[in-house]
C-alpha cells in the first residue's frame, strides 16, 4: 500500500486507466465516422448554428475549420496517434506534456462538437486528462501534483455523492424501491434476461436499489475510513461499474472512474496519517 503514497505511482495508474478508456471511446468515434457527415445527426452545419461566437471571431473560424466534415475525422485520427505515443512506454523520451495538451485540446473539440450523446465518463475523462497535463508540465512541482490528486479524488467523490443525493429524493429509489428493476427492464439501458430474473424478486430489487443509494450517499466517508475500510467503497465502486458495463453497456465509465481510484486511495492514506485513533 506504500505505493499509493507515491504521487508518481498515482499519476501512472491514473494515466493508464484513463488512456484505456479514451482509446476505446476514440476508436468507437472513428468507427462511427459517418455520424459526422453533414446529413447525419452530428452535422457540423447544424451544430455550428448554435452561434456561441460571432462569425468574425478567430475562435469561430478555427473551430469551423477543424470541426467541419471531413476535417474532424482528421482530428480524431490525430488523437489516435497521440494515444499510441502515450501508451507505448519509453517511446517518448521527453516531457509528455505536449502529448497531454493535444489530448486535452481534442477532448475539448469533441465536447464542443457534441451537444448531445456525451456522458459522465466523457466528462470525467476530460477532467483527468487536464490534470495529467498540468502534472506533466513539471512533475517535480509537488504542490501542483498534490492539488491535482486531491482535485480528482474530490470530483470523483462528488460524483458518487451527487448521484446518491438525488436518488434519495426520487420515489422510485426510496419510497417504492424498484428503480433498478425498472431501468434493467428498458431496452435502452437494460437487459431482458436480468429483468426477467428480477421480475418477481422484490427483496432483491429493494436490496439493489437501496444499497445503490446508500453507498453513493455515504461515499464521502471513504476519505475517513482508512485502510482497509476504504476497500469496501472502492470494491463496491468497481463491482458497480463492472455491472453497469455488462448489463447496461456503459463500457467507458469503468475506465474513467477507475482512473480516479488511485487518487482517492492517496487522499485516504494521507488523511489517515493524521488520525490519532
Amino acid at each position: 500500500m506504500e505505493n499509493f503514497l507515491n504521487m508518481e505511482f498515482i499519476y501512472a495508474c491514473m494515466k493508464y486507466f484513463v488512456l484505456v478508456g479514451i482509446s476505446i471511446s476514440t476508436i468507437e468515434l472513428l468507427y462511427n465516422w459517418r455520424n459526422f457527415q453533414d446529413n447525419r445527426l452530428y452535422s457540423w452545419k447544424v451544430i455550428s448554428t448554435r452561434g456561441y461566437f460571432s462569425e468574425n471571431n478567430i475562435f469561430h473560424k478555427l473551430a469551423h475549420f477543424l470541426l467541419k466534415y471531413p476535417n474532424f475525422i482528421g482530428v480524431i485520427i490525430f488523437r489516435v496517434l497521440v494515444l499510441v505515443l502515450l501508451v507505448i512506454p519509453g517511446i517518448w523520451g521527453f516531457s509528455q506534456a505536449p502529448l497531454f495538451l493535444a489530448l486535452v485540446l481534442t477532448s475539448l473539440m469533441i465536447n464542443y462538437r457534441s451537444p448531445f450523446g456525451q456522458d459522465g465518463s466523457d466528462q470525467m475523462s476530460t477532467i483527468v486528462v487536464i490534470v495529467l497535463f498540468l502534472y506533466h508540465i513539471n512533475p517535480d512541482n509537488t504542490i501542483v501534483a498534490q492539488a491535482g490528486i486531491w482535485f480528482i479524488a474530490l470530483q470523483s467523490i462528488l460524483s458518487y455523492f451527487t448521484a446518491g443525493f438525488f436518488k434519495a429524493k426520487g420515489d422510485k429509489w426510496t419510497k417504492n424501491p424498484n428503480a433498478v428493476y425498472l431501468i434493467f427492464n428498458t431496452s435502452t439501458y437494460g437487459s431482458k434476461p436480468i429483468a426477467g430474473y428480477l421480475q418477481n424478486r422484490q427483496s432483491a430489487i429493494t436490496f439493489l436499489t437501496w444499497s445503490t443509494v446508500a453507498v453513493e450517499v455515504m461515499f464521502p466517508l471513504v476519505l475517513v475510513t482508512g485502510y482497509p475500510g476504504m476497500l469496501v467503497f472502492l470494491g463496491w465502486g468497481l463491482a458497480f461499474h463492472l455491472m453497469n458495463a455488462l448489463v447496461m453497456g456503459l463500457n467507458s465509465f469503468l475506465w474513467a472512474f477507475l482512473a480516479t481510484y488511485g487518487a482517492i486511495v492517496y487522499c485516504c492514506m494521507q488523511l489517515s496519517a493524521y488520525w490519532i485513533f
Binding site: 448521484a163 443525493f165 438525488f166 429524493k169 426520487g170 429509489w173
Partner: peptide, 9 residues
Amino acid sequence: WSFFAPNPG
C-alpha cells in the same frame, strides 16, 4: 453527476 436521478428513465 446526477446519473439516473431523481427520476430514472
